[in-house]
C-alpha cells in the first residue's frame, strides 16, 4: 500500500461539555484528544504502509491542533495537514465532508482513505460515507480488521448481530472501530524526526472553497436548540438487606419484562 490518508478529529476528553449560544460545542479551554477510533485508523494505516508507504494525517479544527498533529508525526505519520479557518466553524457532516474532499483532491492521489467509525463528541459517524460519496469512492463502515494483498483488501465489519467479511479494492474509504488497532506511542526516534517535519496548514481559499460552502453556512442541517443535560439524579431508595433487595429487584424485573 503506497499512499494512505487518515482523517482524524480532536474531541474533548471530558464526558460533559458545554455549548455556546449558537449551539456549537465550546472547544476553548477544554482538554482535547484524538478521537480513539481515528487513532485506531492511523495504526491500521501505519501497519499497511510499512516501510515504503506514506501516511498523511488530515484534520479540520483550530490552529491549536498543530502541536497535537506533531505528536501523530512522532507516532509515525509522514505528513500532517491542518485545515483551519474560522469560516469553517459550526460545520455539519456534509460541510465537513465537502472540505475534506476538497483537501483530498488537493493533496493528491491516495490508495486508501481511513477514518474512525464515529467521533465520541458528535457521534454521527456520517463523515466517512459523505466523504466517499463526494469523491465517488466505495465506503465500508465499522471495520474491525483490515488486510491488504496485491489484489485488494479484506475487511471484517461489525454489524449489530454478526460480522461480515468483505472484499474491496483501492481506492476506497474505510472507517474503523475504536478498539481494532491500538495506536502505537511516539518513539524517541520518531519524536526527533517529527521536529523537522512542518505541519501543513490550509484554509478555505487554499482549497478553492467559497465561504457559503463551509461551516454553518455550508451546512444542510441547523441546530435549533441544544440542552446540556447532566444525567439526572434519581436518588432512589437504598436497601442494605440483600434478601429484601433481591425481592424488590425481582419485582422490578417482572415490571420491565414484557
Amino acid at each position: 500500500m503506497k499512499r494512505i490518508l487518515v482523517c482524524v478529529k480532536a474531541v474533548p476528553v471530558s464526558a460533559f461539555v458545554e455549548v455556546d449560544s449558537q449551539h456549537r460545542l465550546k472547544r476553548d479551554g477544554i482538554n482535547l484528544q484524538w478521537n480513539a477510533a481515528d487513532a485506531s485508523a492511523l495504526e491500521a494505516a501505519l501497519r499497511l504502509a510499512g516501510e515504503d508507504g506514506s501516511v498523511t494525517v488530515l484534520t479540520m479544527g483550530t490552529s491549536k491542533l498543530e502541536s497535537p498533529l506533531r505528536e501523530l508525526l512522532a507516532r509515525g505519520a509522514s505528513r500532517a495537514v491542518l485545515i483551519t479557518d474560522r469560516r469553517m466553524a459550526g460545520a455539519d457532516t456534509q460541510a465537513t465532508a465537502r472540505v475534506l474532499a476538497a483537501a483530498v483532491k488537493k493533496l493528491g492521489d491516495f490508495d486508501l482513505i481511513l477514518c474512525g467509525c464515529k467521533a465520541i463528541d458528535g457521534e454521527t459517524g456520517q463523515v466517512p460515507g459523505q466523504l466517499a460519496a463526494a469523491l465517488g469512492l466505495p465506503c465500508v463502515s465499522n471495520g474491525e480488521t483490515l488486510e491488504a494483498d496485491p489484489d485488494g483488501l479484506t475487511i471484517t465489519r461489525r454489524l449489530e448481530t454478526g460480522t461480515q467479511e468483505l472484499r474491496g479494492r483501492t481506492p476506497t474509504v474505510i472507517s474503523l472501530c475504536a478498539y481494532s488497532y491500538p495506536l502505537r506511542l511516539p518513539g524517541i526516534l520518531g519524536m526527533r524526526r517529527a521536529r523537522n517535519i512542518p505541519v501543513e496548514v490550509l484554509n478555505a481559499d487554499d482549497l478553492g472553497l467559497l465561504p457559503e460552502q463551509c461551516g454553518l453556512k455550508g451546512s444542510a442541517t441547523k441546530v435549533l436548540a441544544m440542552e446540556s443535560r447532566f444525567p439526572g439524579m434519581r436518588r432512589g431508595p437504598k436497601e442494605t438487606d440483600l434478601t429484601l433487595g433481591a425481592k424488590a429487584l425481582g419485582q422490578i424485573l417482572r415490571e420491565v419484562r414484557p
Binding site: D92, Q94, A97, G125, G129, A220, T221
Partner: peptide, 20 residues
C-alpha cells in the same frame, strides 16, 4: 450500522440535511 453508512451517502447525493 448499515443504514448509518448508506443514509449519509444518499444525503450527499440529494444535498439533503441528515441527522443521525
Amino acid at each position: 450500522v448499515q443504514m448509518r453508512n448508506i443514509m449519509p451517502m444518499i444525503a450527499w447525493h440529494l444535498k439533503a440535511g441528515l441527522t443521525a
